[in-house]
Structures are given as C-alpha cells and as structure tokens.
Simulated scan of single mutants.
Amino acid sequence: MKNNSGFTLVEVIIVVAIVAVLASIAYPSYEQHIIKSKRSEAMAALINAAQAMERFRVSNYSYDLPNGLSDVFAIQVPVDGGAKYYDLTVVDTASTYTLTATPVGSMAGKDSALTLTNTGLRTWNGKNCWPEGSNDC
C-alpha cells in the first residue's frame, strides 16, 4: 500500500471557510477601531486649536483671526501632514468662536463633524458630547 501525505480538498475548503468566517468578524471591528483612532486625533486637534485660539485672544484681546484658523494652527488632521482625514475650520467673532472638524478623504461618510466652542460645548452627530467622552453619546 502506498502512503499518501497531504491535505484533501475537503480539508482545505474547511480551513478556507473558517478563515473567511474569522475575517468577516474581525475586519469590521478593525475598521471601527481605525475610525475611532482617527476621530480621537481630530478631537485632540480641536482641543489644541482651541488652546491656540485662547493664546491669540490673550495677545490680541479678540478671537477674530484676520486669515482664519491657519493664523494660529494647522487646518487639517493629521496636523503634521500626510493624507488628511479631517478639515478644521473656525467661525469667529471678537468674543466667540466655533471650531469644526469635518471628515474628508478616508473618513468621508464614515463619521460626523465634531465641533468645539469657546464655552467648551462639544457636539458630534447631533448630540452635545463627543463619542469617547461618555456612554450616552
């Protein structure tokens, strides 16, 4: 009798099916993790931009930036260059400002805009909170 070694077609199909099931479970979780990490970077950029706005106000007695947010802070996330996934904008007057991070590029359609005002009000997806800030957001 000849002793054959190797895998049968049925065994290979079973392994491929198991890998496919595991990938179908793991990939959406991975994608959500990437979205969360990019959103966290946008939230950090908004906080840093707000600090830059406050420093500008201390020096100039006004939030009114002559050339927009680019006067005091980067206008994209990631702030150090690379492919952007959020655009930062500001609507400012002498006494108020509203910073907004709008998803673009790889985040377009996957997330909602984040906002931060001079009073500290944070909004996301129609709610007055940021997603990683509480369980009810």
Rank of each mutant, 00 (worst) to 15 (best):
P28Y: 06
L22C: 13
E11Y: 08
S5H: 13
K84Q: 15
K110C: 01
S95I: 15
L65P: 01
K127N: 14
T123S: 04
V15G: 11
G82C: 13
E31D: 15
T89M: 01
Q76I: 13
H33G: 14
L9N: 08
T123I: 08
N125A: 06
A17M: 00
F73W: 11
V58S: 07
Y85V: 11
S40I: 03
P131Q: 10
A113Q: 10
G109K: 13
Y63Q: 10
V12R: 12
A94E: 14
F56S: 03
G133W: 09
D92M: 10
W130V: 05
G120A: 09
P103W: 05
I35T: 10
T102D: 02
G105Q: 01
D92K: 07
I47W: 03
F7W: 13
A49M: 06
N135I: 00
T102Y: 04
V72N: 01
I47N: 05
M1P: 11
D64K: 15
S29M: 14
R122N: 09
N125E: 09
S70K: 10
Y61Q: 15
S134T: 09
I25Y: 11
S134W: 10
Q76F: 00
Y85S: 02
E132G: 14
L99W: 02
G68K: 05
K84N: 14
V79S: 11
N48K: 07
A74C: 02
L114P: 01
E41A: 14
T117N: 03
V91L: 08
G68N: 03
E41F: 04
S134Q: 14
Y61V: 14
N125H: 05
P131S: 09
N128Y: 02
E54K: 01
A45W: 08
T102S: 04
S24E: 07
D80W: 11
N118F: 01
V16W: 08
Q32N: 15
A17R: 08
T123D: 03
S5P: 02
K127R: 15
P78H: 01
S37V: 14
L65Y: 05
V15S: 12
H33R: 13
T89F: 03
L88W: 05
E132S: 15
G105F: 02
D111K: 01
V77H: 02
K36Q: 15
P66E: 11
A42I: 05
K110Y: 12
G133Y: 08
V10D: 06
Y97S: 05
D136P: 13
H33W: 14
V90R: 00
D64M: 13
D111S: 12
Q51L: 13
S29H: 12
S24I: 04
N3L: 13
A101S: 04
Q51M: 12
R122W: 02
A45Q: 00
P103H: 00
Y97D: 06
T93V: 08
T89V: 04
T100P: 05
V16K: 13
T93W: 00
I34H: 04
V15P: 10
T117C: 07
V79H: 06
M53S: 02
Q51D: 15
M107T: 13
D87V: 02
V58L: 06
G105P: 00
S29V: 15
S62K: 07
V21S: 13
T8W: 06
C137K: 10
I34Y: 00
M1K: 11
S29F: 12
N48T: 08
Q51H: 05
R39E: 10
S70N: 08
V79K: 12
R57D: 14
S37Y: 09
